[in-house]
């Protein structure tokens, strides 16, 4: 399934287009039930302190309707618990309060909310058009091959996870990646990426 083209700027070929919207995760796909069973969270660990509840109340006070606070509240929960288990989503729902189903609907709609535990270092590498033209796939494919993970996958030791990001708004400093939903690393090259991994003790 190799692609031929004369583009010297990147060798990373698209092999995924025909595989639909599941991206190119290398993990076997499970049903929803099995997925939740696999990523269950100990409910006793998922709670908000008084201070947390006050924070959520402050988010609610910013808007004319309490439901509007759900996005900030989910961010808050994700930062506290590391990812959004069903338990965490329900906790957010009960705290605001709003229907649990609505919160789960919102959490599942947006890509930056993590519905399973991601790696300690999470790399969202942009491969959209401007980054692709500047070699984004070289970086993405390097991680894929070296660590045997695909889009949305985590290494078995839980140290690294990968995401194929859509335009990060960093096209002028392409290719770009975002680390752990925060820091941008721009004007990436393979050497720069390797040095970054080494700094974090992740080189292979």
């Amino acid at each position: 399934m190799s692609v031929t083209n004369g583009n010297g700027h990147h060798n990373g070929k698209q092999q995924r287009f025909a595989e639909g919207s599941h991206g190119d995760s290398l993990e076997p796909s499970t049903g929803v039930q099995a997925f939740h069973a696999l990523h269950a969270e100990d409910p006793s660990k998922i709670f908000f302190t008084e201070a947390d509840k006050q924070k959520i109340a402050e988010f609610v006070s910013r808007y004319p309707a309490k439901e509007s606070a759900v996005m900030r509240a989910l961010w808050y929960a994700q930062e506290k618990f590391g990812w959004l288990s069903i338990e965490a989503m329900n906790l957010v729902a009960d705290t605001i309060p709003m229907p649990r189903a609505d919160v789960q609907g919102v959490a599942s709609f947006y890509t930056m909310y993590w519905k399973k535990p991601m790696g300690k270092t999470h790399l969202a590498i942009c491969t959209n058009i401007s980054c692709m033209l500047c070699g984004g796939y070289d970086l993405y494919n390097y991680i894929k091959k070296t660590y045997h993970i695909g889009n949305g996958d985590v290494t078995p030791d839980g140290l690294l996870s990968l995401e194929e990001a859509e335009c990060l708004g960093s096209c002028g400093t392409a290719p770009a990646m975002q680390v752990n939903n925060y820091e941008y690393v721009e004007n990436l090259t393979l050497d720069k990426l390797k040095a970054f991994l080494k700094e974090r003790g992740l080189e292979r």
Binding site: V3, N5, G6, N7, G8, H9, Q14, R16, F17, T127, N128, I129, S130, M132, L133, E166, C167, C171
Partner: peptide, 21 residues
Amino acid sequence: GIIVMDEDTDIVEAIGRLAHF
């Protein structure tokens, strides 16, 4: 936002990436 593609660009691959997006 001006995106510039040089003479070596594979247009099908570039637009294909957008199709995925």
